[in-house]
């Protein structure tokens, strides 16, 4: 637009090629026939893109956005560094703290077998660090877009509200997996570098081969991811309620902390099976003999229930909401 010159003539010509039906009458005709066909659904243009492909493309864009965002990268970085710090600290002060001070035995196991660093790191981080990171990403997902105004352009594109929400949640799940995997891989690597590796002693006293142990770490990663994804659904629902992402993030973190406090009050033990936080550390079931499939299955059911309830709340809210930001 800035220069009226030969260059522009070229661009117009290209535009003409890109816009085959630039004749208004033809455009209208198409619009009209489209309107008549199949109850208002337009006839797909010749270069039709299939719905799943378009969905994946938006998911790709979403995931790319999430993992290009400096803040999210910083969080993943911190998550990766913590197992390294635990490993180094244990390596340096190994044996000095093992006088029955009440410290979890699991940390002392690490010095004997590096694989335990993964379990220890996850059981430590799953309490608050991982939930906070997930809350930041999921709480920001809708409210953040509303906050900077991009939400209205995505919906006018048109991304479709249900489609956008589904993609947002899928991206949150991907982030959960990435965060948990980052912790697990970093812990695995550091554990193997700093400590001896070998067959793993289970909590029940039995022993399983090293590779079996690595496999069980994979199961743990998936279980913790499911737990974090359930929290992601809570944060997503809160995210649809506000245009200030900090509000959604903070309330999610407050909910996590409140649940942890409720867990610690023995009088409220009736509530415990219904708390999300109660099940996050349930992955220690893989270290039992036989593997506590029942307990972990129950945990997964709780996660699924939370995800279903909060995703549907998010959906009901988001599809009926006036976008005024």
């Amino acid at each position: 637009m800035s220069t009226v010159s030969g260059k522009e003539a070229v661009s117009t010509e290209k535009a003409t090629r890109a816009v085959p039906d630039h004749d208004p009458a033809r455009g209208r005709d198409q619009a009209m026939t489209a309107g008549q066909a199949a109850g208002g659904r337009p006839i797909p243009p010749p270069r039709a893109v299939s719905a799943p492909r378009a969905w994946l493309r938006l998911l790709g864009s979403e995931v790319g956005l999430t993992f290009r965002r400096p803040r999210n990268l910083a969080m993943l970085g911190v998550l990766t560094v913590i197992p390294v710090l635990i490993g180094i600290a244990l390596r340096m002060f190994a044996g000095t703290g093992g006088d029955g001070t009440g410290a979890p035995m699991i940390f002392e196991r690490i010095t004997g077998n590096g694989l335990f660093l993964t379990f220890a790191a996850l059981s430590l981080l799953v309490q608050l660090m991982l939930p906070v990171c997930v809350a930041v990403v999921a709480g920001d997902s809708i409210a953040g877009e509303a906050g900077i105004g991009t939400l209205r352009y995505l919906l006018a594109a048109p991304a479709g509200r249900t489609r956008l929400l589904a993609v947002k949640y899928a991206c949150v799940v991907v982030f959960c997996l990435a965060a948990v995997t980052a912790v697990a891989l970093s812990a695995l690597l550091v554990g193997l570098l700093l400590f001896p590796a070998g067959p793993i002693t289970l909590l029940s006293g039995g022993t399983i081969p090293f590779l079996d142990g690595v496999l069980r770490i994979g199961v743990v990663v998936l279980y913790v991811t499911a737990g974090m994804a359930a929290l992601g659904a809570v944060a997503l629902a809160l995210s649809t309620l506000t245009e200030v992402s900090v509000g959604a993030i903070a309330s999610t973190v407050v909910i996590v902390i409140a649940a942890q406090v409720l867990r610690a009050v023995p009088q409220l033990s009736v509530l415990q099976p219904y708390l999300l936080t109660e099940w996050w550390s349930g992955f220690d079931g893989v270290l039992r003999d036989p593997v506590a499939i029942g307990d972990m299955g129950q945990g997964l059911l709780v996660f699924a229930a939370y995800a279903a309830v909060f995703c549907s709340i998010a959906w009901a809210r988001f599809t009926g909401k006036d976008i005024t930001a």
Binding site: K14, A15, A18, P44, R47, V49, R53, R57, Y153
Partner: peptide
Amino acid sequence: RYDAADPSADPRTVSTRIGL
């Protein structure tokens, strides 16, 4: 990013269209 949000946009021509 906005083009990806449009389900009918063709990903093969996106660079050309954005350039234009």
